[in-house]
Design a protein around this nucleic acid. Structure first.
Length: 511
RNA sequence: GGCCCGUUCGUCUAACGGUUAGGACAUCAGGUUCUCAACCUGGUAAUAGGAGUUCGAUUCUCCUACGGGCUACCA
């Protein structure tokens, strides 16, 4: 009789700074898997390192995941049946389990000071015999409850001499486990060292805390970054030593997201260096006051950001590229996550955003544009803005482009691009334009078609190419060579505004 | 250095022993056009190298090279 356990996954960042692309993707994969399996997704904060704690980081994590549309069923933000979800608030729990390990002989007290350890490492390096490892071969030469007489150990403990608790890794044992992404992974315990499980400050390290919490919170699948792969055997040993092997979660170690240029994992500073954000939302470092850009502030839509991220390392096996969150949830599978790291491509991110923006309903783009108009002190009628949207929607890559591609619908140009003027302005241009507007003045019905007909007729009559008239008109109306079709532009502006811009433009350009 | 993981167009990737090695981004060319974009059509472009296994290897095995991760009282 096997009952299928309800899927429970967790995303467990440490609040040591903002969450970057890779972290968001890990959260996303956890979320997609949980939703698809009708399971539970948990947000746990791993703040056992008080040295690296950064003010505001936890709030940042919650806010950015919320912006992305990644929601949690349990966690620091909403509580739940396994609270608390902040590890710093669970220290009593870990104390209990470390005691079990001590009692059973799988862990031991170590009294070596950081300075002593440092010295041993240096000596090792000098001799050139590789890096020092605190393990079966060296632990007897160190100061710990395995090497010292028990009387002395007792004294040290009674005298409150600072200590850490280390795991006692067995000698020469083959540890293997099945990774959902990589298949069988094998490691010999020879290569593991006696990692610290409990620090002298009374808090556990990641290794102990994550195992204890995953067990207590009934986590069924651990989906985390590849940087954890080397310590997975250690975690497995902990499950074994605590007698939890049968309820051990399954592991899936995600490949890393790499720098777009060269190699190495994508890092905080790559964004500044290469000119793209690596964070979902902007972050200001509370100490240095450095500000890091965010996708939200750059004008990305969360759907586009998520879509791009989902496909960075995972693919559906079809040629579909655009996915809503719901589609991702139903298409996702851990088996189709790639094994190798992916270089992040900011160009493709931009393309995704363009796709989403150009498929957005008018109404939503309207809201975005209204905000920007307002921000620029322009009070435009919705009706007019709604006319503008279809004319610019194909032309934008970012939300901020809405304004950059449409400001001239709402206000006359303040300057006229000199490069463009030189290129298109001829000696006869002023006269041509002047003659043309005489005709426009006489128009009864000022609309796109009528204007088009008039222009064709006029240019034929004058024996000039359409561009000879249109380009100067555009310069006068927009101030440069950008923008949608001239007739569309004119129709939205209306006859009066159209003429007024041409008049004042002619004055400014010829003076 | 040791251990672990990886390697298909420039980039993200598909092809789970038999394909003219497919798609997307980028790039290039052409088209459209009143401009700038967008858009449409087409092109260039890849199995890291070497041994095996097999009738047949991108696919399986081994070696080499290269890349990455880990190697803290950090996560």
């Amino acid at each position: 009789m096997t009952t299928v356990k309800p899927v429970r996954v967790r995303f467990a960042p440490s609040p040591t700074g903002p969450l970057h692309l890779g972290g968001v993707r890990t959260a996303l994969y956890n979320y997609l898997f949980a939703r698809q399996q009708r399971g539970v997704c948990i947000l746990r904060i791993e703040d056992t390192d008080q040295q690296r704690f950064v003010e505001g980081a936890e709030q940042y994590i919650i806010e950015s995941l919320h912006w992305c549309g990644i929601e949690f069923d349990e966690g620091v933000q909403s509580g739940g049946p396994y609270a608390p979800y902040r590890q710093s608030e669970r220290s009593e729990i870990y104390r209990e389990y470390i005691q079990i390990l001590i009692t059973s002989g799988h862990a031991y007290y170590a009294f070596d000071t950081p300075a002593e350890l440092e010295q041993v490492r240096n000596e090792f390096q000098k001799v050139g015999s590789g890096l020092f490892q605190y393990n079966y071969s060296s632990r007897n030469r160190m100061k710990n409850s395995l090497s010292l007489p028990s009387k002395e150990v007792k004294e040290l403990l009674e005298n409150k001499v600072p200590y850490v608790i280390r795991i006692r890794i067995p000698e020469n044992e083959e540890i293997s486990f099945h990774d959902l992404i990589r298949g069988e992974v094998k490691v010999n315990t020879e290569n593991l060292d006696d990692k610290v499980l409990f620090k002298s400050d009374g808090l556990p390290t990641y290794h102990l805390a994550n195992v204890v919490d995953d067990y207590l919170m009934k986590i069924t699948h651990v989906i985390r970054g590849e940087e954890w792969l080397p310590s997975a055997p250690l975690h497995l040993l902990l499950y074994r030593f605590l007698g939890w092997e049968l309820s051990m979660p399954q592991f899936a170690h995600l490949p890393l997201i790499l720098k777009p240029d060269g190699n190495g994992k994508l890092s905080k500073r790559d964004g500044d260096r290469l000119g793209f954000p690596v964070f979902p939302i902007a972050w200001e470092d509370p100490v240095s006051r450095d500000v890091f850009r965010g996708y939200r502030e750059e004008g990305y839509l969360p759907e586009a950001f998520i879509n791009m991220l989902a496909l960075l390392g995972w693919n559906p096996g079809t040629e579909q590229e655009l996915f809503s969150m719901d589609e991702l949830i139903s298409a996702f599978s851990i088996e189709r996550i790639g094994k190798h790291g992916s270089k992040f491509d900011p160009e493709k991110a931009r393309w995704f955003n363009h796709q989403y923006l150009s498929h957005k309903p008018d109404k939503e783009l309207l809201d975005y544009l209204l905000i920007q108009l307002n921000h620029n002190g322009i009070n435009a009628k919705e009706e007019k803005v709604l006319q503008v949207i279809p004319l610019i929607r194909e032309r934008i890559n970012f939300i901020s482009d809405l304004w950059q591609q449409s400001w001239f619908f709402f206000q006359p140009p303040k300057t006229y691009d000199d490069q463009v003027r030189k290129k298109i302005w001829q000696s006869s241009t002023k006269e041509l334009v002047s003659d043309f507007i005489q005709e426009v003045v006489r128009m009864d019905d000022f609309n796109k078609e009528a204007l088009h007909d008039l222009i064709v007729e006029f240019t034929n009559l004058k024996q000039v190419k359409m561009g000879q008239l249109m380009n100067p008109l555009r310069l006068l109306v927009v101030g440069s060579n950008q923008g949608p079709g001239m007739m569309d532009l004119a129709a939205v502006l209306g006859k009066e505004e159209f003429l007024s811009r041409i008049h004042s433009g002619l004055e400014k350009i010829n003076s």
